[in-house]
Design a protein around this nucleic acid. Structure first.
Lengths: 237, 237
DNA sequence: TTAAAACTCCCCATAAATAGCGAGGTCGCG
DNA sequence: CGCGACCTCGCTATTTATGGGGAGTTTTAA
């Protein structure tokens, strides 16, 4: 079992395209004997990226019906650090129950396990296994494989980040100390006058820093500049 | 080795206080034969939470000298998904070199390995091992233990989140879809006029959303609101 | 069903941010 | 030693954001 995992991880580390991830997920599904294995990257607007063994029909339907906004799995994973087994969730709301039935009709199994994974700048992804098993068998399966699945999920996310070149490209412009301090003050809610007082400089000088930060960050306005600085991780609230 | 890890993980799962974490980190240090093991939770104001085997003097000095703001480990981990070995980092800047020398003077080893860990609502923590070893030995050590260390780091963070009840209490206010969309537009650099056009609403309506978002987020101004929304991970650029 | 929340629109006055023009001192690097 | 980058300060005019007031409809949830 462990050797098989090592093989899969080696393959994963050699993956170069999204199709490679797709193939690995299929291998993984067969290896674990489950219905589906899915890695997908989630953001507020919709699915930005993903691979898995769900049927194209189900993926289309999921997007079309905007299930992303009512899916308890996503909702709960967004607020949790630890993985979740689907049966633990609250499926009582009407849209959730409709979605669940719809999922079963589209070939999903009755059990699921989803691992939330977070990367830099709010990046968020999910690694999911779906199966048809009794509650006891599923609990045992998860108990036995939870750790391997976490490793796998993280390796998938690592690859996805490489593909997208998220943050790793060092294209983040360097701000001077005063510029960083200025951005920091603004990000913490200070007005220009307050920030200038905090930094013991005139408001005009502060403005010069904000302007130069804006230009370096390629931002349209102060809010944009602060957002980019935060997103790039060069300031922290 | 693996059995020892299982023991440690069991102890960790039973931990109930920060002191327990502290004791486990000390056991871990002795087990791996390294100089220091540290778990700490990071935000901009300073260390919010942490446990580890660093001397009190070093922790005090670190905070006093505001090293948090110049520490390349933190800076880089904030932008990465994968762990980092300290020798890979850029220590060329003067403040970084001074900090490094200061660290050596305070009993730190010449090698380090830090794993960034992210939780819900922008929570961010680091799990660090520090040792005195040659580059080759350290590389081999990391190669052998990377996976276990990742598991350990995640278990530490899971515990820390339990202690702090992060995210469970709804401490992050829920914004309505339109409010989120408004914040998103502003974070992407649009002016109010542009954002209103983008969302197909009047500029005044947009203002209502910005205002309500501001109030929900407890922000002083628009920039602050966007910064908090980003920081909480409820919007993504 | 009914109440709460969300979504949409409008006006007015004031506060704040942006854009443009300046100038001069310090520090490090080649 | 000069060049560039950083830090500091001032002025004016225009654009934009904020804060206060109100008032309808639709959607969602108890």
């Amino acid at each position: 079992m462990t050797n098989r995992l090592e093989d899969l991880l080696s393959t994963l580390q050699a993956a170069a395209t999204l199709e490679d991830l797709q193939a690995i997920l299929e291998t993984l599904r067969d290896h674990y004997g489950v219905e589906h294995t899915v890695y997908h990257w989630v953001n507020s607007v919709g699915e930005r990226y993903g691979a898995g063994t769900y049927s194209a029909e189900w993926v289309d339907r999921y997007l079309e019906k905007d299930y992303l906004r009512m899916d308890p799995v996503i909702f709960v994973c967004f607020q949790r650090f630890t993985p979740v087994s689907w049966k633990e969730l609250d499926w009582s709301s009407k849209p959730a129950r409709e979605m669940w039935q719809d999922a079963l009709d589209h070939g999903l199994g009755n059990q699921g396990y989803t691992i939330p994974i977070r990367g830099p700048s709010g990046q968020f992804a999910l690694f999911t296994l779906n199966a048809s098993l009794s509650d006891e068998d599923w609990a045992q399966f998860i108990d036995e494989n939870a750790r391997d699945l976490m490793i796998l999920g993280h390796e998938f996310n690592k690859k996805a980040l490489e593909f997208e070149q998220w943050g790793e490209d060092g294209s983040v412009p360097a701000l001077s100390p005063r510029e960083l301090a200025s951005m920091g003050c603004l990000a913490r809610g200070m007005s220009r006058a307050q920030a200038a007082a905090e930094l013991n400089i005139s408001e005009h000088t502060l403005r010069v820093y904000i302007e130069s930060s804006r230009h370096k960050l390629g931002a349209m306005n102060t809010t944009h500049a602060v957002a980019r600085a935060l997103s790039a991780g060069i300031i922290i609230i």
